[in-house]
Amino acid sequence: MKNNKPQMARREFLENCTRKLPGFFLLFSSLNTANILAANENDDYDHSAHEYAMGVSIHKCIGCGRCADACKRENKVPREGHYYRTWIERYIIPADGEAIVDSPDGGIHGFPEVKTGGDVLRSFFVPKLCNHCANAPCVQVCPVGATYSTEDGVVLVDDTYCVGCRYCIQACPYGARYLHPEKHVADKCTFCYHRITKGLLPACVEVCPTQARIFGEIGKRSSPLNRFARFNDITVLKPALNTKPKVYYAGADGEVR
């Protein structure tokens, strides 16, 4: 019995080496080569090895609306009518009275100046999108299993299976879903799933000029999200609903909801 133990340990160690060394090698090689390579290696993509999330730094957002615009272009979201996978809200907190919030055209064409008349305490922009909740109410209520959480933590809609009952739209506390006017199915942000699985950034993160949006993976120490979480006070939207969102906000005011 006693003699056996060190032997076992040695064997385990050797096994570990053979299992993990190629992993290390792969890691370094992927650091050296450009992400494009990863794009070509889509077949090797392991869905279960990722968990995506986004950080939004409210102090950095300048309300230029490039994210909302890029989202519409990348995902071919209808321009006519009110359909937004992501949008930007402007908050104006006056010295007295209720906060004023607006989002003209989702912020795509900027924010025309508002004459408040009174003293303004503070004012800021808040980008919004699907929170890809870990405990997603939309997934819970979908009667047929057309909306679901992927292994990598992204909430998607199967547009060939959705019956268009719109229960998920009612169940989403964040107003992140809409009924696609041509496809007649529920539609929403996918974190640009077709991009992130190729090692690219979501379109909104790609074009954000001030890095107000940070995209990364939970539980990866080298992810920019890790740094974001280290240096900021993080909140999520409507935490009381226990949806466990995976879009984290830094500097979100109590008025944001």
Binding site: Q140, V144, G145, C162, G164, C165, H184, V185
Partner: peptide, 23 residues
């Protein structure tokens, strides 16, 4: 009549999502 895809209604019987109140 209000479904976006009424022709897919049979899915409710075939793959009902047990966590959904509507299923």
């Amino acid at each position: 009549a209000h479904l976006g895809h009424p022709e897919r209604n049979y899915e409710m019987f075939l793959t009902p999502n047990t966590s959904s109140a509507m299923a």
